[in-house]
């Protein structure tokens, strides 16, 4: 579904991703762990199409297409979703209106019929229940006045509503208490399916107790330095990221 090869990315003149390769198959959940500043958010932003990220080398193929050629909204319509590490507040733009516009824009782009407000609200109610989000949040402006936890759950709620094929979760777990963490995990697990893939970026192993990944990668200094199965996460937690760096050096020597 997603194949990244030798990706080099510069941000503000500085090379952040330095030859990153990764392949995610449909139905899989990949976790990406790594220290602060490793380039995890950069990867998510590049995949979602944010401006200011200059790809100097390498390729990203998603569902047989060159992902890097598409506008952010085209990527979304093609099924790419990024749950932001820092969701943005948009004053004055009503949340319900925003969600309906987004969903219908994607459907229109794919040549599907747009949902009327009854159909839309029915869908919204179903998904809200899973994440235990209050109805009232729908009447507010996008993310405005949401608590940190509400913002993160709102990202997952949007994911549930938009039903992407490739969901990238950028530290959705950070700042969540255990109950909220479980809700997020429930939201993700409910959506796991053979034709959908997840890239779960996290700094801690905690989330992976609830969303058990198929593959775990360690991202450090702009590259994948270690790949393993779900058992890699607790080892990292125990030994710290320095341990990976040392093993890497030992392996090279």
């Amino acid at each position: 579904m997603l194949k990244i090869e030798n990706l080099h990315v510069r941000v503000a003149g500085k090379e952040i991703l330095k030859g990153l390769s990764l392949e995610v198959k449909a139905g899989q959940v990949h976790a990406i762990m790594g220290p602060n500043g490793a380039g995890k958010s950069t990867l998510g932003n590049v995949l979602a199409g944010r401006e200011g990220y200059e790809v100097t080398q390498g390729s990203v193929v998603y569902a047989g297409k060159n992902l890097l050629e598409l506008e952010p909204e085209e990527r979304a319509a093609a099924g790419v979703f990024l749950a932001f590490q820092y969701p943005v507040e948009i004053p004055g733009v009503n949340n319900t209106y925003f969600l309906r516009t987004a969903l219908n824009a994607q459907r229109k782009h794919r040549g599907e019929a747009e949902l009327d407000s009854m159909q839309f609200l029915k869908r919204v109610r179903e998904k809200l229940a899973v994440l235990h989000l209050k109805d009232e949040l729908l009447h507010r402006a996008v993310n405005e006045g949401f608590s940190g936890g509400e913002k993160k759950r709102n990202e997952i709620f949007q994911m549930a509503l938009l039903e992407p094929r490739l969901a990238i979760l950028d530290e959705t777990d950070s700042g969540l208490d255990i109950d909220a963490l479980k809700m997020v995990a429930d939201g993700v697990n409910a959506m796991r399916s053979p034709d959908r893939a997840f890239l779960v970026v996290t700094h801690y192993q905690r989330l992976l107790d609830y969303i058990v990944p198929d593959v775990v990668h360690v991202l450090a200094d702009g590259r994948i330095v270690e790949t393993g199965d779900a058992s890699l996460a607790p080892k990292l937690e125990e030994h710290g990221y320095a341990w990976v760096a040392e093993r890497k050096l030992a392996g090279a020597a």
Partner: peptide, 24 residues
Amino acid sequence: RALFYLRSRGIPLADARRMMVTAF
């Protein structure tokens, strides 16, 4: 950042701008 957020959810650039300016 807000513009990118809207676009990342599938809203075309022109519509995203219009939404934000109208709200403003």
